[in-house]
Amino acid sequence: MSSHTESHGAHSPNEAPHATHEDAHYIKIWAILVALLVVSVTGPMLEIRVVTLLTAFGIAVVKAFLVAKHFMHLDTEKKFVVQLLVVCLGLVFLFFMATSPDIMKHFGMNWVNESAKNANIPEKIVHHGGVEGAAEHAEGAAEHAEGAAAPAEGAPAHPAGEAH
């Protein structure tokens, strides 16, 4: 049995029909993607946080959607493939959400992550941060002052737990 019977012509009849577009269609999608890329690079130049986030990540999602739909042909693929990929993305999201109280936050009920908080202090930052970071830095500085007053044996007292 020769192996090239399996090439595109040999799809069994119950397969999903694969829409074949003309090359022009793909070039059109590519042009849209490049235009989106230009927007996503120029957007942050306005230095407005909301615009940066929207252009950076909003457009990334749009681009990903276009690539998945038109280049990977997920629009004509069997439904279960799309579901599979969405479930995997969901698992990543689940991991992120359930882990964030411990990793993303630096204090919680009866615990405080001193070293992560101390990493936020402005002294360690060589260059100044953006406008939005300033408030955080001030807070970090206050934590630091508190931490500095703590004794030397490596376990600074921090009563953050009781605040909750």
Binding site: L91, L94, A98, P101, D102, K105, G108, M109, N110, W111
Partner: peptide, 21 residues
């Protein structure tokens, strides 16, 4: 089985409120 993993970490320093979940 994807929703239970932190029961290995109940007292391993995760936020105790997550342990309830």
């Amino acid at each position: 089985s994807f929703f239970v993993w932190a029961h290995h970490q109940f007292i391993a320093g995760i936020d105790p409120r997550m342990a309830n979940v």
